[in-house]
Structures are given as structure tokens and as C-alpha cells.
Design a protein around this nucleic acid. Sequence first.
DNA 1: TATGGACCCTGTAGCCACTATAGGGTCAAG
DNA 2: CTTGACCCTATAGTGGCTACAGGGTCCATA
Lengths: 135, 135
Amino acid sequence: MSRLSIGDLAKRTGTKVETIRYYERIDLLPAPARTRNNYRSYDDDHLGRLSFIRRARDLGFPLDQVRELLDLADQRDRSCEAVDVIARQHLAEVERKIADLNALRGELTDVISRCEHGIVADCRIIGALVPAIEN
Amino acid sequence: MSRLSIGDLAKRTGTKVETIRYYERIDLLPAPARTRNNYRSYDDDHLGRLSFIRRARDLGFPLDQVRELLDLADQRDRSCEAVDVIARQHLAEVERKIADLNALRGELTDVISRCEHGIVADCRIIGALVPAIEN
DNA sequence: TATGGACCCTGTAGCCACTATAGGGTCAAG
DNA sequence: CTTGACCCTATAGTGGCTACAGGGTCCATA
């Protein structure tokens, strides 16, 4: 039944103190008890919940999906289909971003490869950016 | 010597009107002349510059790099090495993001593949998020 | 001539997920 | 008794826009 200061909780979860306060402000992490000095005092539930949030964030889930996952995690008798849906949605989003970035990398590599290290006036990188304007 | 309204410029460059005003506010695009009605009136230089900005943005360059590229593009006698450096930096950044997202995709795929479509209490996706807390 | 719709203007607030700063209070060690 | 490490609140800043609110202007049509 350990009690943690915000700094301790931060260390245990690899979160910045300001971020923890931010999570409280947006009602992602419940407000903890306070000591007589008005310091926040966290318990194991907070530790578990914040660890969950951090893991989900590390996996790239946006905060509103994290919120949904937290809600679902509490409804232990329900089907986990909703969980699967959220995870798959997120995976699809990640794959879309990868595809976009790969296309981008192709273009950039292409542009850079044409650089002949001369002067700016002849630079193919700049050339690829300067538009050919038709009337 | 065509004169463009902000709406025309927006159409020609595929930019939103609000974005053009934003670029002016942050001194990325020079403030144009005004008509007697106080409407913005753009010339070909603006068109060229905004097109340049948009292309660079499409290639994912952040605005401060776009700013540098614009400055460099004007110094036509200088070596284009600085241009090459910026482009390569950006490419490296893009590649880093791709690597991060690929790692993420791996983890997500892994987590999702273990879902057995039962109830939340047994859900492996949630399980992968709920931490095993040691004292 | 009235009116409607498509433009244009400024200024401000909102988005996401934090991060940083200012300006203080509290506490234990040396 | 002071130093430094914590803690508190409230607010503003980040990037790159986007979306109002609350007006003005212009042209065509009824």
C-alpha cells in the first residue's frame, strides 16, 4: 500500500512530472489524495493506470483511444471485440503513415541524388522545388 | 504581370486562404500590395514563392527548413552544399520516423495477433498494456 | 432597388500532447 | 540558516495550420 509523490510516480513510469499533472487536468488520470502540504499522494491504482497509459502511448495510441482502452479494460466481462477494433484501427493508421513516409523518402532520395554540388543557381534540389509556372 | 486575389492564389497553389494569411503573419510570404478595398493583391513573385513553399511542405520539410531553403534559393552564386545538408538532414529524419513506425507496427501486429476474441478479462491486447507491477 | 451569395478583411481561439516558465511554498541536511 | 531538491498553481508556448465571429465589398439577378 505504498504512497508515491508525483516525482516518485514520474520515475516509476518514465513520465515527466508536468505530464502527470497534465493527465490529471484532462481527466485521464484521477486526482489523487493530498498530503497536509497539498502534495499529491498516489497509490498503486494510479501507478497501474499511468503505466497503462504510457504503454499505450508508446504504442502510438492517441489519447482519446487510450481513454477508450482504459474504459474497456475496466469492463472485464465484456467481449474484447471493441479492443480489437481500436487496435486494428490504430495499426491501419500506422501503416498509412509508413506508406506516406516511404513515398516521401523515395522523392527525397531522388531529389538529393541529382545534386551535383555546384552553385545554387544550378542546384537540382532547389530546381525540384522551384515551380515551372505556366501563364 | 497578372494580379491575383488571395482566393486565386489559393486555387493556383492548392493552399487554403487561411494558410496564406498565416504564412504572411509568420513572415514566410511577404505582405502583398492592397487594392483600394484593402484586398490583398499578389504578383508572380508571390505565386512562385508560395509554390516553392508548398512543394517543400509536400516533401515534409518543416517551416523553418523551408525558410532556410528560400533564403538559399535567393543566393544563386553560393555553393549549394547548404541545400544538400538540409535535404539530407530531412531525409535522415524521415528515415528515423519510418524505422520508429516499423517497430511500432511490429509490436502492434504482435499484440493484435494474440487476440482470442474472448472477454476483456482474458484479452491479450489489454494484457499487453496492463503492467506487471513488482512491489 | 433590394437582396443574395461569393468573395474579402481582422482578430482570436482551438487542435494535439505535451513542455516550459514564472512565482511561489515546504522540507531535510549540513 | 541557508542551500537545494522537491512540490504547488496558472499561464503561455510549440507546429502548422483550421475554424470561427463579426464585419465589409462586389456583382448579378428579380
